[in-house]
Nucleic acid binder design. Structure first.
Length: 283
DNA sequence: AGTGTCGCCTGAATGC
DNA sequence: TGCATTCAGGCGACAC
């Protein structure tokens, strides 16, 4: 379940391998992802050199020498592994796309649930493309400040938890880090987004940034489906305060779990929310 | 326009 | 044991 830290980690892992490399060939084993691989992927990217890698929201963007961008979204279960040159490739189930570089390195896109997305776009369409046009600010940008948050959430009747998951408000925050940030801010995930004071929202911003940057430092979180680009495990999951801790103590817990029942799990529009009812009461 | 719900998809975990 | 059900969740599509 890659969120911003996981995508950033994968992007950083790919950068040294891909930068200034020429794409030698592409093998599409299976194109019918939920959003199908473009049929002209091969002719768009083969022979091109990688000029730059970056990240926008949960997309990895690869700038190519022909002014096209290769965009990769890992969806729920997408993984990219790096097979060094002269290493024997052992095919795994769900290896949908192989990209071979001039260096001999092979990149393998594997995605059991096929929720991921891979497509190309002209770099000039970077802001107008429908995948990116609606996206809100990056959580580390200056634009993402208390004034912005307060004005965007004004009169919002939806819960703060759901609001944080909306990529039009701010990008990169998914279910795990929304839960963790609200815990750290002491905000009740159920309360209406429009009812939170500006001061409280102001405090939430550096907390979101802190949770995300600590997760990036730890190499992301390893859950059922996600690993770093080099196949090693991220370890931020060991730092969860509330996520996936139903009935257990929260991070800074000093409550009597036998009495309180510990971390609670509720479902908000089909998504699990984990929170500590004692520490998250702020409105 | 804003909000809520569903479907996509597979594998792991759980239930009977 | 084995089969069936539930759950995970990012995002697009759709309904109201």
């Amino acid at each position: 379940m890659p969120e911003l830290p996981e995508v950033e980690t994968v992007m950083r892992g790919l950068e040294p391998v891909l930068l200034n490399q020429r794409i030698r060939s592409v093998t599409m084993n299976r194109a019918d992802l939920r959003i199908p691989l473009p049929h002209d992927l091969q002719q768009t990217i083969v022979g091109q050199t990688v000029n730059r890698l970056h990240r926008r929201a949960k997309y990895i963007l690869v700038n190519l020498s022909n002014a096209q961008i290769l965009a990769v979204h890992l969806g729920m279960s997408g993984k990219i592994s790096i097979l060094p040159a002269k290493t024997n490739y052992i095919a795994e189930p769900h290896d949908h796309l192989l990209i071979d570089l001039e260096s001999g390195t092979r990149l393998i896109y594997n995605d059991p649930r096929r929720f991921g997305m891979i497509f190309t776009l002209p770099s000039e369409d970077r802001y107008s493309h429908k995948a990116f046009a609606h996206l809100g600010p990056e959580p580390f940008s200056n634009e993402f400040d208390a004034d912005y948050l307060k004005s965007k959430l004004k009169n919002k009747t939806t819960s703060i938890k759901q609001a944080l998951l909306d990529q039009r408000l701010v990008v990169g925050v998914g279910n795990i880090y929304a839960c963790e940030a609200l815990y750290q801010a002491g905000i009740d995930p159920k309360i209406q987004a429009g009812k939170i004071s500006k001061a409280k929202l102001a405090s939430l911003i550096p907390i979101i940034q802190d949770v995300l940057s600590r997760a990036i430092k730890a190499g992301g979180s390893t859950l059922k489906d996600y690993r770093k680009a080099d196949g090693e495990l991220g370890y931020f999951q060991h730092s969860f305060n509330v996520y996936d801790r139903k009935g257990l103590s929260c991070g800074n817990c000093d409550c009597n779990i036998d009495k309180t029942g510990g971390v609670q799990r509720i479902v908000q529009s089909g998504r699990s929310t984990f929170f500590c009812p004692k520490k998250q009461r702020t409105r």
